[in-house]
Design a protein around this nucleic acid. Structure first.
Lengths: 154, 154
DNA sequence: CACCATGAATTTTATATTTAACTATACCCT
DNA sequence: AGGGTATAGTTAAATATAAAATTCATGGTG
């Protein structure tokens, strides 16, 4: 089989196609969500950290890294930025002096309360290419795909 | 409705859930593909550019940026790197001296021919959480989602 | 108790990417 | 032809992220 034939055959392959289409869709969606978030003066990472603290309460920096998938050095960096904006504060752990908690401030909480409604509306708009039934389908498939891929990490 | 209730209600919302799950799945998959590509000494962007030239022939740098969604400054950067590795060369356009083409070299072509088979195998492995039928379903849904989101960019 | 392996956070360094400013060329248009 | 405007690519600066080295604290074990 020639190079060209081999390529055209491969382009039909569901695995490869899925990878390409997953990449593009996520990129398109993420770019629009990013535009939305930037209007509020945050980038998606900062927003993600703040959201985490809002919903799950104060966390050791370490844990934040695990949940948001960010290297420890990067955590220090974004927590610094959020602290400068006064949306969170560092709280030393009394029992274990190696540990520092990050905790959302009242200002941070109010900030999120202010922007959530419109933010959610934007996400609905951005994803309105699919009906609710299709979204549920997509969620199931993506969950399966993602969980399996994670498990493969060795 | 309290903040907490509002949050828990929102967590059920298919749009928001879809966004979260799309982000995570893509991240898991992309990380593994990245590991695969790095074994060959490239990062995903370099790989993407090279693949584009392999499949679609020489391109004005400008066009590469449009197709890969990369700012013009970044194009210069990755094309420089690929040129240093001798996987591509710059070719000035004779008709329009503003334009420079990037063209894959023989070395670059051989390189991709060497790695494609295993690369495809890896992608199959990474996506094997879904059956072929599910992949086809997911492709349709993601295509629809992505195209619609792109259209929203105004 | 003293030592050492581990773990958490920071610091530093490297890499990737975007944005903005700049240069050169081409096109238009009267 | 000349002047204005748009386009391609590069350069430089700013930002984001990852990777590696460093510091400090803890807990276990000989």
């Amino acid at each position: 089989m020639s190079e060209q034939e081999s390529y055209y055959k491969k382009k039909q392959d569901p695995s490869l196609k899925l990878f390409v289409v997953l990449t593009k869709a996520q990129r398109s969606v993420a770019d629009l969500v990013k535009d939305d978030i930037q209007r509020y003066g945050l980038n998606p990472t900062e927003f993600g950290v703040l959201e985490l603290l809002y919903h799950q309460g104060e966390q050791p920096l370490q844990k934040i890294g695990e949940k948001i998938l960010l290297a420890s050095g990067s955590i220090t960096y974004v927590v610094d930025k959020l602290e400068k904006k006064e949306y969170l504060e560092r709280i030393p752990c009394p029992n274990d002096r190696r540990i520092t908690f990050a905790s959302i401030t009242e200002k941070g909480r109010e900030f999120l309360n202010d922007i959530f409604p419109d933010h959610w509306k934007q996400i609905e708009r951005i994803t309105d290419g699919l009906t609710d039934e299709e979204k549920v389908q997509a969620i199931e498939l993506l969950k399966k795909l993602g969980q399996n891929a994670e498990g493969n990490q060795n």
